[in-house]
């Protein structure tokens, strides 16, 4: 059961001016898997994630070496970042709802990508909200302002909004850091279900979460990839001592 490689990073190095944020990262992400990335603060895990949807491009003094491909195509070769970001969705650490209604939040991306058909839009909004386990809670509140939802609901709304533009890859940047355990469980449940359709990369500070949902786990430290492997194996018998120290809480 070998899945094709979806994302490939070859000798990826990133600098912000004189600060080296990533040092020669080489790793593959397989189609339809969940790759968890763990590591202490400033380990470069978020930087890596933001390379995949070219969110670092506008950072001052950002420079980049190496190769990053999706389906074999170099994503930095082409200037069309909008097309890339449509394929590579992102869920942020804090739930950031746009200042509009619940419905409009989910429909926002669709409208901007030119969808006019109202019935089609309604059905995609409904499908996305259902996939994010939010539909039952908001189906009667679609015209309410999204700010009125609870924090956990807002994060699932953000998830639905990302799903609505039909990405192939979803990046999560510590998506549950501000959520209660029940909301966290719902997001994780959704992630596991998404494996049928999406390739997912999860950056998290919560090693337990990485262990719960990740098929494989990568450990980053100070801009380097220390170890990557099957989640179960990495958590029970890590090869590198630093990985062992981190997951057992001896530092970080």
């Amino acid at each position: 059961m070998v899945s094709p490689i979806k994302v490939q990073s070859k000798d990826l190095s990133v600098r912000y001016g004189s600060v080296e944020a990533l040092k020669s990262i080489s790793l593959d992400v397989y189609a339809n898997e969940i790759l968890s990335i763990i590591g202490p603060a400033n380990s470069g895990k978020s930087t890596f994630l933001r390379c995949l949807n070219r969110f670092n491009d506008n950072q001052p003094n950002f420079s980049f070496k190496g190769l990053l491909t999706i389906d074999g195509q170099n994503i930095y070769a082409d200037g069309n970042v909008e097309m890339l970001r449509k394929r590579v969705g992102m869920v942020f650490a804090l739930p950031i709802v746009l200042p509009m209604t619940v419905f409009e939040n989910v429909a926002y991306g669709l409208r901007r990508h030119g969808m006019k058909d109202k019935t089609q839009m309604e059905s995609i909004v409904e499908r996305s909200l259902k996939a994010a386990y939010l539909w039952d809670e908001v189906k009667d509140r679609l015209q309410e302002h999204a700010m009125k939802l609870s924090g956990g609901q807002q994060q699932r709304l953000c998830l639905a909004r990302t799903l609505a533009v039909d990405p192939e890859i979803i990046l999560y940047d510590e998506p549950c850091s501000g959520l209660d355990p029940i909301s966290t469980a719902k997001i994780e449940e959704a992630m596991l279900r998404f494996k049928q359709n999406y390739t997912q990369i999860l950056v998290t500070n919560n090693t337990k979460q990485a262990a719960r949902v990740g098929d494989r786990t990568a450990f980053f430290l100070m801009g380097q990839l220390i170890e990557i492997g099957e989640t179960k194996k990495l958590f029970t018998s890590p090869v590198d001592r630093r990985t062992d120290d981190y997951i057992s809480g001896r530092f970080g």
Binding site: G89, F92, I96, P99
Partner: peptide
């Protein structure tokens, strides 16, 4: 963050 969200959805 509003700008970030919108850009992350592939909006110009």
């Amino acid at each position: 963050s509003f700008r970030q969200v919108s850009l992350s959805l592939g909006v110009s």
